[in-house]
């Protein structure tokens, strides 16, 4: 009950926040919500089903490119383009999953497989003429008109879309954990042999986790495409992007519902805070921010290896799942 009340307060605050803050804090909040959303999506695979993916940038990139290309070529609004985007990303995920699970590629090896496919795709897109290759793909920006279906409009529109997506993903993963499938995932994460002996079809449950996770992640990619209006294979499919996606859920607490949200708040504020501080003192040299970021990450990992949320939840006296 206490957890729900806290969540309600947080959600209400986020709902009214735009009225009270300026353009820059709003942009930071959008970034926080975007990474919280992607973290929740990744957490379905690793946190719940125990499948380590280090190539989630693949699904962000596919989602972004498919929806953006359909909009640019045929004028298909983003919310409709999201369907084929999710289908393409899910098929890619299922393909990698089927290969990996059938050939018994597990743990770190599976993670390497996901990196290999993401990098492979990055290089392909770098050389694909009709999506602009390495010089990137751009969406036309039209000022002054707002259209929710097409995801065209001012930052505030994107803020509420990001908030809606994050809240929906949060509620959806909360609900999933209370289904047969959710139990199957947790069982497989803990011990796949025991899960199978309890009647869980391990292959199918793992494939379902990949499907849910890649579909959700690709919708994050659609958001990215229409919010930033530009995408470069070098960035969107990069290993660095995959790592950015997984930082928040791990720092927040793997396998917990609220972990990705908390992790995203902490990490984004840490990053933005360091930037402002360094600029304030005139020390903003390239690399300076990331060194401090890395040091902070190191401290968090050393002090709270299981993540911040399980610890904070105990402090607040709420269930660790929140």
């Amino acid at each position: 009950m206490k957890a729900r009340a806290l969540l309600g307060v947080l959600f209400a605050l986020l709902l009214i926040a735009p009225a009270a803050i300026g353009a820059y804090p709003l942009a930071v909040l959008i970034l926080i919500l975007h990474y919280a959303y992607l973290g929740i999506a990744w957490n379905v695979m690793m946190g719940f089903a125990g499948i380590l993916s280090l190539g989630h940038a693949l699904y962000v990139g596919l989602g972004a490119y498919v929806a953006a290309a359909l909009y640019a070529s045929f004028g298909l609004p983003a919310l409709l383009g999201a369907v084929p985007a999710a289908v393409v990303a899910t098929l890619a995920g299922l393909g990698i999953g089927a290969l990996g699970f059938r050939f018994r590629v597990n743990g770190v090896y599976f993670a390497l497989l996901t990196i290999a496919f993401a990098e492979f795709t990055r290089i392909l897109f770098d050389h694909m003429g009709w999506t602009g290759g390495s010089s990137g793909f751009f969406l036309p920006v039209e000022h002054g008109h707002t259209n929710l279906i097409a995801l065209r409009g001012p930052p505030i529109l994107f803020y509420y879309v990001a908030l809606g997506m994050t809240a929906a993903a949060f509620v959806a993963s909360h609900a999933l954990m209370r289904t047969r499938l959710g139990y199957a995932w947790l069982a497989i994460r803990e011990d796949a042999d025991s899960a199978a002996a309890s009647g869980v079809d391990v292959f199918r449950a793992r494939m379902a986790a990949v499907a849910v996770s890649s579909a959700l992640t690709s919708l994050g990619g659609v958001f990215y495409a229409f919010y930033y209006n530009n995408m470069y294979p070098e960035q969107i499919f990069s290993m660095a992007r995959s790592i950015e996606i997984i930082l928040a859920p791990i720092i927040g607490g793997l396998g917990t519902l609220f972990g990705p949200v908390l992790g995203s708040f902490v990490l984004t504020l840490l990053g933005e805070g360091t930037t402002s501080l360094l600029e304030h003192f005139g020390l903003a040299a390239p690399g300076a921010k990331q060194v401090i970021y890395g040091l902070a990450l190191l401290v968090i990992v050393m002090v709270r290896p299981a993540g911040l949320w399980p610890w904070l939840a105990r402090r607040l006296g709420v269930g660790r799942d929140g």
């Binding site: 690793m46 380590l52 743990g107 770190v108 790592i243 930082l247 791990i250 720092i251 793997l254 040299a285 390239p286 690399g287 300076a288 921010k289 990331q290 060194v291 970021y293 890395g294 040091l295 990450l297 190191l298 990992v301 050393m302 290896p305 299981a306």
Partner: peptide, 21 residues
């Protein structure tokens, strides 16, 4: 494994950006 990964990732971020700096 993911905890070890995070640790060495933090180390790699520090080394890489230290060099950049």
């Amino acid at each position: 494994e993911h905890e070890q990964f995070m640790l060495l990732l933090a180390v790699s971020i520090i080394i890489l950006n230290g060099l950049l700096l």
